[in-house]
Design a protein around this nucleic acid. Structure first.
Lengths: 166, 166
DNA sequence: GACGACTCCATGCAGATGCATATACATGCT
DNA sequence: AGCATGTATATGCATCTGCATGGAGTCGTC
């Protein structure tokens, strides 16, 4: 019985360890470089950008905080305060959610849209420089596919199922 | 003249944008999951682990702060204070650097080694669960190779060189 | 329609981070 | 030697984050 489902700690294979190390390091490095570009241009951080972009894509430029949380992987308390700041800068607006007074809708303002747009000029350029210049489109596709596998839930493990006759 | 080397902002290709999005998101998600495992087991964050591991690998378990900075991509001021805390916990020790009194050597203590070891039981298991279970070793190798390309400096762009006759 | 359980968002407080700058030492130039 | 310049680490202060908890509103059940 080789595939016991108990909790015995499993040493990952060297290839897996290496891939994880590279993943964490590459992301940190690239984020640092890109953030530096944004800062150099006088813009706020990537989090602000992600949030603005997500809102812009939402129906009528609106999403609930809960939706934003999932979309950009933010902590609830953190998002709440980020929205305070962004509202203070006039980038978003809190409006009541019809039919449920616990919730609210966050709406991107014209100013918010404009900022997202201006940031993209810098951000897109940085992506191009730090990623586009290093990978062909084909390689980028392979990378996407591999990363997708990491995000996917263990889909009921169809492997070995065939061995369970009946 | 299609490959001008001026600074005109270049829109990255869709494949590249997608790859970048996946990279940033996958890393955040996996780090969050792994950090959650560590916390659940009562351990400090991955930064502490990385630092301890790096020290352990250094000659006699010692590195200068400068070396650590590069190895784990920490900000200087940040590292300085992290070392305060870790020293307070008895995990590392600051010792003078022979021949240069500006510098210092950070030495991992037995306690530090022990913590790194205990954390690995949880960390390794998490890596196995979140990465090892999703990728074959071959795929992990491909992922490593692609990520490596992203970290490598632009090696003198040998493409298109052949078109410059003479 | 009232109570308990739950969901959504906000917030007080402690601790961590970013930024600018300080401190201490080293090194090179004249 | 003396001074300007550079390198290594620390720190004051403002801001941001994490954690626990609070307050308001909803929903199901009786």
């Amino acid at each position: 019985m080789q595939s016991a489902s108990n909790k015995a700690p499993q040493e990952p294979s060297p290839a897996v360890i290496k891939a994880w190390g590279r993943l964490i390091r590459t992301q940190r490095e690239l984020v640092a470089r890109i953030e530096a570009e944004l800062k150099k241009a006088g813009f706020p951080s990537l989090y602000w950008y992600d949030l603005l972009l997500e809102l812009k894509r939402g129906p009528e430029g609106r999403l609930t905080p809960k939706e934003i949380e999932e979309a950009v992987l933010f902590e609830q308390y953190n998002l709440s305060r980020l929205l305070d700041r962004m509202e203070g800068e006039g980038l978003v607006r809190r409006i009541p959610y019809p039919g449920d007074r616990r919730r609210q809708l966050i709406e991107i303002t014209d100013e918010g849209r404009a900022l997202q747009w201006r940031m993209w000029a810098v951000y897109g350029n940085a992506i191009n420089q730090f990623i586009g210049a290093k990978l062909t489109d084909k390689e980028a596709g392979q990378l996407s596919a591999l990363l997708l596998k990491l995000l996917q839930e263990q889909a009921a493990r169809p492997d070995k199922i065939f061995s369970r006759v009946e």
